[in-house]
Nucleic acid binder design. Structure first.
Lengths: 202, 202
DNA sequence: GTCTATACCACGATAGAC
DNA sequence: GTCTATCGTGGTATAGAC
């Protein structure tokens, strides 16, 4: 199972629809969905605004396509982390999943980052299309943490719901301060995972 | 030093400028800045769009005013937490500050939440006006953590920059999932503080 | 599959009456 | 301090030529 075509290299790299998606996702992340106009996207792609409608039925539809790809990337990353750590210790599994989540945010284009940044205030139609997949992803994390807790590896007194959302907040907030171009993703992942698992107290 | 007039009860509650600020802040949080129109704000306030310009020079100016109030609330909350825990243990101080930050997010209207939600993609003029105050607030946290680290209360191996940003991410993300109307702020603050300080491992 | 041209609308903002 | 009325701009979206 390969990555969505928009993020991979097709018959010729960055052509047509894929190229539009790449650029739109990047602009949505930078400026937000509402603040990004179709004219601006078309400009960056190198075409006229009207031509976008050959590929997408509406601006909302374009955002939905971007977010769908983002969610597919997240699920794929989770799969891989799960497979790679079937027999590992609880701490190792957590670290692998944190690393996978962060890698998904940055290593397959701005699709997943767009998800983090735009979903909350996205138009209702878009939310309705994307939220179920998002919930499924969150449920996988919830299950992971619950299994660690019932195995006795995770503090029994912890409110798993809040703990998970706080971890998500920590990881996802990195889109505001982490610059993938400057590198250091591994260190960030290590710090966040360690902090979540062991805390910062001496 | 009292809270900004917009959040307190003036000579008559929720009048004029304060009322506009309250409602605008709430709509900005719900829908985002760009997606919220002046007509919509005016509607909710009970006046016509043009009348808003008696109180604010522009939409950007209105957002700036909202965010300024939000930052003032944050600084005030930090002051109070600092005063209340001068001689306390490191863990207690952290918990007090986490609690204060979260309380600031929810107990003085949507001003601070608006900050979290809109600042990143706000127009350049707005950012230029607000970012310095935001940076000052972040610097106070950085100083707090650095002092705990040099006192030996906080793990010397931790990257304080990433740790602080991850904590901010955890706290601020609560605007996406915590409903102040349903209560439970204290528990959430406790969980996030505990998690930051001690981790979730058993 | 991309173009030009344009319809139609909502936006932020202004002017002047009251 | 709020109203009505309106201006100019830029937005999404459509139609039809190429």
């Amino acid at each position: 199972m390969s990555l969505p075509s928009a993020t991979g290299l097709g018959t010729d790299a960055l052509a047509g629809r894929s190229r539009i998606l790449d650029i739109a996702a990047a602009l949505f992340v930078e400026q937000g969905y509402e603040a990004t106009s179709l004219r601006q996207i078309a400009d960056a792609v190198g075409m006229k605004a009207g031509s976008l409608y050959y590929h997408f039925a509406s601006k909302d539809d374009l955002l939905t396509a971007v977010l769908d790809i983002g969610m597919e990337v997240m699920h794929t990353a989770f799969d891989a982390a799960e497979l790679a750590t079937v027999d590992a210790s609880a701490g190792t599994r957590i670290e692998a999943h944190v690393r996978a989540h962060l890698a998904a945010l940055y290593e397959h284009g701005p699709y997943t980052a767009a998800h983090v940044v735009t979903l909350r205030t996205a138009p209702a139609v878009v939310r309705a299309a994307v939220v179920p997949t998002r919930d499924a992803y969150e449920a996988r994390w919830a299950d992971l943490l619950a299994s660690l807790q019932s195995a006795g590896d995770l503090d029994a007194d912890i409110d798993l719901h809040v703990a998970r959302l706080a971890l998500f907040g920590a990881m996802n907030s990195s889109v505001e301060w982490f610059d993938p171009a400057r590198g250091g993703l591994d260190e960030v992942a290590g710090t966040i995972a360690h902090q979540f698992w062991n805390g910062v107290a001496r």
